[in-house]
Write a protein that binds this DNA or RNA. Structure first.
Lengths: 393, 393
DNA sequence: GACGACGGTTGGATCGATCAAATAGCACCA
DNA sequence: TGGTGCTATTTGATCGATCCAACCGTCGTC
């Protein structure tokens, strides 16, 4: 074990040539042992491997990169996110991404990505030319996002966190199945006895928001429940939500439950209820989206849809590695289901009639006597929402 | 402007030699124009610069790095952060760091840093050898952190976000002045008429927590107010806080205000108050720390200390660049003041007696008839907390 | 007018790996 | 024996920038 020694940093670096000499072979053979081990005779390979281990040799990326024009680097543009109640997204996602990329032999290179600036692509181009990054991970994809098209045209590998909401779906992506999430919420609320379930969404036009709204609508229809007049919208702001939800609560036959497409909106619902002397959970059930850290801390604690961000990060790496291996393979899309975390805001009241007994839930997750979902989601080429299935088909 | 052309990605790269030919000089001269412009004659420099611009030339990092053994890369280890109410830290800090590093010509390379694992340094070493990173940015420094010492011994430049809480202060760091923050909170509460101000802290032993507690204590003493029995502690968990704060609220002469060292703890105080039929803000003032996105959304909204994370990020870059320029310069430390954001939980009640009239506040920020602060904070070499106190009064 | 000093420039070697092509080693069959 | 077809390994060139040492012209000085 000479590891301790060489980990001692400061000294001269171990080069491929030194390994070659120690193993009694040429430099090229060592290179092959690393990059095309199948070319070597078993015995030679073993000898080289031992020499590498003995010297604790690590190939110098810059040299390798100079020759091969690839860097084992993945570019990730950090966009300035508006302070929202659920901004730990980057945190969790980025850590998972970086972690899994590490395991696959890649590293994540950060750069500041201007949101929708004109020279947006310029920054990607810079990274490409300065550091020869092998691929990009996009996040915060939005309608009319030009990045996927731009990258695809140049045949630069990338994976997006968030489907490309454009008409023509481009490239690989991983996304959280928002529709599935809100549908789960509806199922859960219906099982608890609710019939009038409102939706508090974002203004139409955002891909994510519309998707989550669709899940609610489809689930309602599947249960044979009406949706007319049960949908309101607000920007992602608690105050705006507080006002926007009013029609749902005050209407002639007010709702008994509200599904909000974000925790921030859900908080607005809380306030609107309090304003009316009513209690979230007890009087009107509320389900949020994102499962922000605050959700568990509110009182009553907020039921919410937890996004599997760690899994999204790992999936991005997986898809990216596959893409790098075979640039022309069919595009892969992966929809991961969020998980409904039930808390006080939607839990049946202790002792109430609606309390579903453990042994025989009144409604199973996918109600048997209602027709199956009409169509696979309107996402072309998308795998059905099976969650993390390992690879393509 | 030929920029548009070369931004066209796929094609052949522009090399230094091509620039040299176009400018009618040798390659070395172009290199000098980039790295040591002072060596060139003004006219030549101008000509080379124009050629560079015309061709939209960018030096190839890998080649440069191979020769110089430096990469213009800054390593940042992302640690898995426990889901807390205020996890947008990484978000804001990292974006600012990456952004300002970009401007300085550096890029941030992410890697997964195990928290306190035995092979922790190994990961740093890897990054050093694989990618020849020029420097590191540390965060989540803690008592007994071995990283600063390890890096310093190897003369690897680094800047820590968070002072090294060890006995001997090592290396450059930037930190938020927690003591200043809690002191500001006390001043603010005293100005609003409070005299019995409790502290809800973390268990002793964490550098950050102890620092924030100290600020409270020193400010109380400065105002001539007692601190005995007014301090309680809990782990950073709302439930634990709810229980821990009880003695402060229920004691014979209960407190009228509580300073909590995190928003999570403050939330526990909210709950404890509600549990007792009392209202945060109206009955007992509460001030949190971190100004998490949830703080503004709680009702009543929570006064909290806002950390200037963007500025911390920029400062890290600044110190790092300085350190890279002069590895042997004296270590720099920078304490930035958090900003107290006053919200409903500590705002004087409208119309109440405690409402300080604009023209003659009952207590000025620095009470004239109490002695001045005893000593500058016990941080050797630290700059005085100059920082941006824009809106703190 | 030759000399050294100096600012500015030049050609050539070099960083450490990979690529392309050539070679050695070996079995097999005519 | 000699050619053929493999496979395993070696040799030499190369990626693009920087470092080094030498070079050249100009100026001031003795």
């Amino acid at each position: 074990m000479a590891r301790g020694r060489s980990a001692g940093g400061g000294g001269r670096p171990v080069t491929l040539a030194m390994v070659a000499q120690r193993a009694g072979v040429s430099a090229q053979t060592v290179s092959n042992a690393l990059n095309s081990p199948e070319l070597l005779a078993g015995e030679t390979l073993e000898r080289v491997r031992r020499a590498i281990a003995d010297l604790d040799y690590r190939p110098h990326q810059a040299a390798r990169s100079l020759r091969t024009r690839s860097s084992r680097l993945i570019g990730y543009g950090v966009a300035p996110t508006p302070p929202s109640i659920s901004t730990s997204v980057l945190d969790r996602f980025l850590h998972a991404l970086s972690d899994s990329a590490d395991l696959a032999g890649y590293r994540v290179l950060l750069f500041a990505a201007p949101v929708g600036a004109d020279d947006e692509q310029e920054r990607y181009d810079q990274l490409l030319r300065d550091h020869s990054v092998d691929a990009f991970v996009l996040s915060n994809t939005h309608r009319g996002d030009r990045r996927p098209g731009w990258l695809a045209k140049r045949e630069i590998p990338f994976v997006a966190f968030g489907r490309s909401w454009a008409a023509r779906d481009i490239g690989d992506w991983v996304d959280v199945d928002g529709a599935q999430g809100t549908a789960d919420a509806v199922d859960h609320l219906v099982a608890a006895g609710h019939r009038k379930i409102g939706l508090l969404g974002w203004p139409r036009g955002s891909g994510v928001g519309d998707d989550r709204a669709r899940g609610w609508r489809e689930a309602m229809e599947r249960h044979g429940l009406p949706v007319r007049g049960l949908r309101q919208a607000a920007e992602d702001d608690a105050k705006a939500a507080q006002l926007a939800v009013a029609p749902l609560l005050d209407g002639p036959g007010g709702v008994t439950a509200v599904v909000a497409v974000s925790d921030t909106l859900a908080l607005g619902v809380y306030r609107a209820l309090r304003e009316r002397g009513r209690t979230p959970g007890a009087d009107v059930a509320v389900v949020g989206f994102d499962d922000s850290p605050a959700a568990a801390l509110l009182s009553p604690s907020l039921s919410s849809l937890h996004q599997p961000l760690e899994e999204v990060g790992r999936a991005c790496t997986r898809l990216l590695v596959a893409r790098l291996k075979d640039p022309r393979a069919a595009p892969q899309r992966l929809l991961l289901a969020p998980e409904l975390v039930v808390r006080e805001s939607s839990a049946p009241h202790p002792g109430s009639l609606a309390d579903p007994p453990r042994d025989e839930p009144p409604h199973s997750r996918r109600d048997p006597h209602t027709p199956p979902p009409p169509d696979p989601p309107a996402v072309p080429d998308a795998h059905p929402p099976t969650a993390n299935r390992t690879a393509s088909e």
